[in-house]
Amino acid sequence: MGRFVVHRAAQAAVVVVLVTVVTFLLLHALPGGPARGILGLKATRIQIEQFDKANGFDESLPQQYWSYLVRLLHGNLGTSYKLNQSVSSLLVERVPKTLLLTAMSTAVALFVAVPLGVWQALHRHRVGDHVTSSLALIGYATPTFFLALVLVIVFAEKWPLLPPEAPQGTSISSLLAHFSGLVLPIVTGAVTTLAAFSRYVRSSVLDNLAEDYVRTARAKGVSERRVVWIHVLRNSLTSLVALLGYYLPVLFGGAVVVESIYNYPGVGLLFWNAAQQSDYPVLLGVVLVISVATVVGSLAADLAQAAIDPRVRGALR
């Protein structure tokens, strides 16, 4: 197992380095170079030259990349000139909130998707399966912002049960204190995930039902229900964990949309506002942090899968 962890962690480290290369190159692909990108389009030549000198942007690219890496390692992600605040302090404030929202909507999605997928597989090709599968697919096909609109109209306007906007607290506990405001963002974020995962679970269960071990279980006298809920589901869940790792980028992407619609004070909203104002230090800082989070998340998912799947565990011992 140790060797596997080392190997997989090394792969992740390579990917993290590549991500920093991409963000570094993006910074240099900005129109007019990094200085104009950071100072804005109205900056004068002299301002730019001074800025370049002060920040080492007049050095060679490899040298600049090196100092960029060194700065990153010191936790320095640059400064937002628009917000007059360091990017890292912005992220420290915002990241936990996004994690909270994403974790809650993913949990809700999984909580519904797994039983639903299994139930669909058990009732395959019957009316209930067709109806729920179609509904899930419609959920998947609906753009999140459209769905959010419908939910707000129904649950906040027509029947004012829930607030149409997320709570604006600064701390996590203040967000949780106004939980009713989180319900619509959580549900909105959960629908796409729910649709994707219930589809996955359904087909995974069906695939597994064709395996020889299912025939063995039946030959032992195991009931059909137990075959699915115990024998098959345990196999399906191992791959689901790894899939969850692959799915992280989609989850974070969804956070941008959900947060900007409900005005939820997370990284997504920060990013969205930064994009509107061309606040590049924030944009690139967020891209870097979210990408690294994704890499670490997939690493964790792979290790978790290795821990619960005896075949992977054994093969790599």
Partner: peptide, 18 residues
């Protein structure tokens, strides 16, 4: 892996400003 790690929507937003 690197491409997957950077969420597409984020990349598109940055690209859209360029």
């Amino acid at each position: 892996d690197t491409g997957i790690a950077i969420p597409a929507l984020f990349l598109l937003l940055v690209a859209g400003t360029i």
